[in-house]
Design a protein around this nucleic acid. Structure first.
Lengths: 169, 169
DNA sequence: TTTTTTGCAAACAGTTTGCAGCACA
DNA sequence: TGTGCTGCAAACTGTTTGCAAAAAA
């Protein structure tokens, strides 16, 4: 769903397209990342220094309730906040590396099968499906293997890998 | 994984099996439902009135970190708390009715396919997969359809269905 | 008898609410 | 020009932390 249809969709519902909402909608749509309320607030402040954190929360709630954005947890890797993305793409799962925090998206048939089977076998009308997968990405596994190898050859025990990504928050 | 192996698994890690932890483990394992921290706390209090809410949180954190229980959100239908279940069954998705709040479990092939495809195509070592699906169960859809029908025949507009289940919390 | 674990109190993060004034349609 | 929206302050929910006392191994 392109940004324009989101805006139209709101208009049709009698929801006013205020400056603040425009800014937030643009940010969510254009970022390409998964931003949380605080990040959105800070980015929005650059465009409108007077904007309030509460407005961000209210707007996110509105967009979520009207089904225009999806709320993600991303395995609570960083903390307990939520992340947002516009509902523009095909259905996808989010895959989070539990070592470095990287988030990847997975598109594929099993997601559709899952949805259809739930509709068929449980008799549901599915509205939203959220799949989050935690694991270790190939990069982190390689690093880990190398560390273990080095430890085996020479030096004493290595420290555990850090649980949180250091670049965020 | 039966309850006994969970307890053994803890012992092996040098984790002490205190009275409080026994109680909580038994509750999570035997309830058959998905309980949140507050519900567990209240149930645990019946067996040990001196138990503290903090101990519940600490125990849940421990069990989660050792991979013995899984944490669920259940689409945040009720609120922002988390729910817990022991990791004893096969992989399954949770399907939540957005009208009545009922939670069902879905077992099936697509979940395994999904996991394997993520491992293969993204090169991940998958540790945990969580799928939550929100929709409307057949019962609620039937009720809704009947309401609409009745409204069409006789009376003026009907009120919206309630968003939250009234039996919980 | 040493090391964990607990209970208590207090702090904390993330989010929501009540209300008066502002601004969009 | 009225109703919806915003900003502000304050509250609230769910969860975590520091510390001394209690209880496992």
């Amino acid at each position: 769903m392109p940004l324009r249809s989101i805006k139209n969709s709101l208009k049709e519902k009698g929801v006013r397209l205020t400056r603040q909402r425009q800014i937030l909608l643009d940010l969510i749509d254009s970022s390409g990342q998964h931003l949380d309320a605080e990040q959105l607030y800070k980015l929005a402040r650059d465009k409108d220094p007077g904007i309030n954190r509460v407005t961000v929360y209210r707007t996110l709630k509105l967009l979520k309730e009207t089904g225009l954005v999806d709320e993600l947890d991303l395995m609570h890797f960083e903390g307990d906040q939520h992340y947002y993305e516009t509902r523009l793409k095909q259905e996808h799962a989010h895959v989070i590396c539990l070592s470095c925090g990287k988030v990847e998206e997975f598109f594929g048939e099993p997601l559709y099968r899952l949805r259809h089977q739930v509709e068929k076998s449980l008799g549901y009308q599915v509205v939203i499906a959220r799949t989050e997968i935690g694991g270790y990405c190939s990069h982190c596994r390689a690093v880990r293997a190398r560390e273990l190898e080095e430890a085996r050859i020479g030096s004493p025990a290595q420290p555990e890998p850090k649980r949180r990504a250091t670049t965020q928050r």
